[in-house]
């Protein structure tokens, strides 16, 4: 499938469907994006598992670090990879050894490996690349609108008062699929090896 842009419904189904998320490369340093995303997703009710061999023995927000995906020892719905593009393939290879397989492999903002994506998709796994689940959750729920960000969704329904740990509705009307036309074009130009 095309990974330059994603229909909102594709992302919506993933974020509505998964319950457990293993975050590979999660950092205990509280200014790193992986820390922000981990904390936010945990607050929104996801069962978060931090994976980072460098921090085994420590915990991230009371969740103990595990050294590798296979050490999790229970089924996981989604793997969120916080690594550079060049470190994606080994993680995907490891994920493909899991039994049962994860339903989704998500690569963070800035990370993209088309060969790894193809391999995962061939095994029936849904793939998202170069996106942040925190940003996408915030966008589809419009929680991100507090920061002046274009959620590209509309709703005429009264929203519930958000409270700690609450899952928010992501089922708003989409203004457009994926990114804006201009940012799509820019992302595409950046990925074209010219």
């Amino acid at each position: 499938m095309n990974h330059d842009t994603y229909a909102d419904n594709y992302i919506r189904e993933i974020l509505n469907g998964v319950k457990s998320i293993a975050m590979v490369g999660a950092s205990p340093v509280n200014v790193r994006p992986s820390y922000f995303a981990f904390k936010y997703l945990a607050q929104r009710g996801y069962d978060m598992i931090p994976v980072n061999p460098g921090h085994v023995g420590k915990s991230l927000l009371d969740k103990p670090f595990v050294g590798s995906l296979r050490e999790i020892g229970r089924p996981i719905d989604m793997i969120d990879i916080f690594r550079n593009s060049s470190h994606i393939m080994p993680v995907v290879d490891e994920a493909l050894q899991l039994m049962p397989l994860p339903k989704v492999i998500w690569m963070q903002l800035g990370a993209r490996d088309d060969a790894a994506a193809e391999k995962a998709e061939a095994a029936g796994i849904k793939v998202v690349m170069n996106r942040c689940p925190k940003i996408e959750y915030g966008r589809l729920s419009s929680e991100i609108s507090w920061m002046g960000v274009n959620s590209r969704t509309l709703s005429s329904k009264r929203a519930p008062m958000p409270t700690q740990g609450m899952r928010l509705s992501l089922n708003r009307m989409s203004v457009g699929g994926g990114e804006t036309t201009a940012s799509d074009r820019a992302a595409k130009n950046k990925n074209d090896p010219t």
Binding site: A7, D8, N9, S142, S145, N150, S151, L154, S155, S156, K157, R158, A159, P160, M161, P162, M173, S174, V175, G176, G177
Partner: peptide, 23 residues
């Protein structure tokens, strides 16, 4: 399934706004 795209005038009225959660 593709998302339907609202037009400019719809966005001018609705984008960013939602009934207030409290009231």
């Amino acid at each position: 399934m593709t998302d339907r795209l609202p037009g400019f005038s719809t966005l001018a009225v609705h984008a960013g706004a939602q009934p207030d959660p409290t009231t």
